[in-house]
Write a protein that binds this DNA or RNA. Structure first.
Lengths: 164, 164
DNA sequence: GAAATAATATAGCCAATGCTATTTTTCAAT
DNA sequence: ATTGAAAAATAGCATTGGCTATATTATTTC
């Protein structure tokens, strides 16, 4: 009575894309692992740019976590080659770090702008973008960008029309 | 030289919404905690509906994790009142469980449909929706629904697709 | 009804991410 | 130069979500 020994054969049950779903979950779990790294790198880039320095206390305060939590994560970032740390002199991004930060920032910007463009309030857009950005694939980002471009131009068109 | 003692005063630095950003991160961390619960409940509902039963092995296989991992999580779901378990008879949703499942399914559906509607391929939409759904606030979902409603009755879809 | 099989439970491990409390190190100010 | 404050490091703990290996318990089948 059990047809579970081979999910690929579950066509009759309506569970059409079981294998595919497994992959979705796997992918999502993977994303979760890299989310924090990305958040840190992005934030460090922001701090460096805005204030000239990124210290553990600043990062901790911005993320809303304790300083030792940050210290631990920074070790990971160092071991993964994204940052350099000079004791008591703050954090610096390596080339890969800068690259990742740039990518994250761009992605974040796209998601947040996109949400705003479909009528989400800026505050909510910020919050939701923070969570969603890590799960937006390149393809989805492209779609967001297309949409942004199209609404911008259609607004211009609408403006032009309303003027004439 | 350090203006960090009070972030609310950082207006001159360009870090306008530091406090707000903390909240975003907090919210995102919170979301992450409930994601798994939602995934499980949603999946259990699917399995019950499609196959009539939801057993640990099915869930494990679908999520791509080991059975003991599922067993552990099910204990959590029981303690949180979302499911009931009759040993060797599978999993059943409680009323709150059914309610949560319904909510998740609806949300998932909206996000996935929405992504498709702006030109994301079904496969990517499925994967990205899996990760994004947990971070879509009610407000964002409303915006998605509005958009879906507007596109079904107009030709913006054609616009979006023609670009790709 | 006994044996084989399938499902679940349990034990014990690991890594990641958070915390508090405390120490060490650096910097600044007198 | 010393000291006091600030920053970072360290120690030690909890929780969560993975894993493997191994019992235990139901169900089926003969």
């Amino acid at each position: 009575m059990s047809q579970h020994e081979n999910v690929g054969h579950d066509v009759e049950t309506g569970l059409i894309d079981a294998d595919a779903q497994v992959e979705s979950f796997r992918q999502t779990r993977n994303n979760r692992r890299t989310e924090l790294v990305e958040d840190y790198v992005e934030l460090i880039a922001d701090l460096l740019e805005d204030g000239g320095e990124a210290r553990q206390v600043d990062i901790a305060q911005r993320l809303g976590v304790a300083q030792p939590t940050v210290a631990k994560m920074l070790k990971r970032l160092i071991s993964e080659g994204y940052i350099q740390q000079r004791r008591y002199r703050g954090i610096f991004l390596t080339d890969p770090g800068r690259q990742l930060a740039e990518l994250c920032r761009e992605r974040h910007q796209i998601v947040e702008s996109f949400l705003c463009s479909i009528g989400v309030s800026p505050e909510t857009a910020r919050i939701d973008a923070e969570g969603m950005e890590h799960h937006a694939s390149p393809e989805t980002l492209e779609a967001f960008k297309r949409f942004l471009a199209s609404t911008t131009s259609s607004r211009i068109v609408a403006q032009a029309r309303s003027v004439s």
